[in-house]
Design a protein around this nucleic acid. Structure first.
Lengths: 227, 227
DNA sequence: GCTAAAGCTGACCATTTGGTCAAGAATTAA
DNA sequence: TTAATTCTTGACCAAATGGTCAGCTTTAGC
């Protein structure tokens, strides 16, 4: 008679929800810092301010806790993936793409690092996702980019390499935060810095891919190949 | 009477050198995959085909083994850091910069991932290096980039963000190899792929930063601001 | 207020961890 | 050949690992 347990649904009492949140937040930090193997339940429990037994009571096992975190991160990611079409303005789409990925790095640095750590380790838990869902997503975006190139709205760059370029250069500010801070000599990057970086990346990508405004070209359809 | 032990010097008999090489190679793989904490001496020993005691005999401790690997990686890195001056051709320098970093990802993927893992974890062993040596290196390059911008050889982009862009987008192909392979559906990236990507990145960066050829502008000095 | 469910946690377990050591085997130098 | 040095490795150790469980307390529904 009990409701079927959809793992992604948030159910249970207030206590459960509160403790689970604390554990997930703590675990995200520890896993991000030390990787799956390197993270210990003891450390996670201490970070969450709970006894180790309690962590296991709520999460069942290290494995399921880790998987839950990965799934949560993928959900956050999915939110970002609004649909685009070849009719949209390339400059705006690319700009929004860069901006939203940048904000992901800013808002969820531990989640980003957790993801990075999983990939670094060979993606043992995410291989399926990468070569399935995510691959499809990339291919569909790539098709749109290609369409833009065909219409002369941007240079005929390889769309997949372009997506990787955007991913890597934005994710960098979460994953390599320690390096960025060490080199810039800062305590932390503030909103202005992030705005600066976002502008810079947007500018370089859009200019670097020769993105043109649709009205310039598409309004004068037929008159293609204008240098 | 014993020679002073410079840790970076390779000395010792043939046996020692051979075993140390095997251990270092094995350890690099395991540390890259699982991080410092997640890597176990047992796993490293098995990967090297030696008993655990033997690993400790040669390396002393997990810590020193890890530090040795980091130092080796930093040395490889230093080789790459040839000097540049404001008199050089920006396009050539940037192109060479991207190409050499790309080759680093290709030739030493495990080393790259080891480095990434160290930074991900907050750079506990490399903080000094990052905010010292490496920071100086970045600042000196940044000065050259700024000089180029002043001379109108490229857009006035923030040189540090540019360096991070190049670092991240090239390192990506080592660190996120699992993701790249999953999404492209490939077993491995071959030399042609790497050449493609290098070309793409070079093109985007150079075009995106508005890099102009010195002869165009500098030869006609004084006649600046030519659109 | 009673009862059932949910929450809590210290004690405990087998295994693995990084590291030591002693004693023997192989190599090298004389 | 001999003596010193280097190499090799199984046995061992205290600490930490992920996980179980029994028994307790607290909460929620009636």
């Amino acid at each position: 008679m009990a409701k079927a347990e959809h793992p992604s649904e948030q159910e249970g009492g207030a206590i459960r929800r509160r403790n689970e949140q604390a554990i997930l937040a703590a675990a995200e930090r520890v896993f991000a810092r030390h990787g799956y193997r390197g993270a210990s339940l003891q450390a996670i429990a201490e970070e969450a301010g709970l006894p180790k037994s309690n962590v296991l009571y709520y999460m069942g096992s290290k494995r399921t806790l880790y998987v839950r975190l990965l799934e949560r991160m993928m959900e956050r990611w999915n939110v970002m993936l609004d649909d685009i079409s070849a009719e949209d303005d390339p400059a705006e789409v690319l700009s929004a793409f860069i901006r939203s990925k940048m904000q992901m790095s800013r808002r969820h640095p531990e989640g980003s690092r957790l993801f990075a750590s999983e990939i670094l380790g060979g993606a043992p838990f995410l291989q399926e996702y990468l070569s399935g869902e995510l691959r499809d997503w990339v291919q569909s975006r790539a098709a749109v980019f290609r369409e833009w190139a065909d219409r002369g709205l941007m240079d005929p760059v390889d769309p997949v390499w372009l997506i990787f370029l955007i991913w890597s250069s934005t994710q960098h500010y979460a994953d390599f935060e320690a390096q960025v801070l060490g080199i810039t000599g800062r305590e932390a990057l503030d909103d202005d810095d992030l705005e600066d970086i976002t502008d810079f990346l947007t500018r370089v990508v859009i200019k670097g891919c020769g993105v043109r405004h649709p009205t310039q070209t598409e309004a004068a359809r037929g008159n293609h190949a204008h240098s």
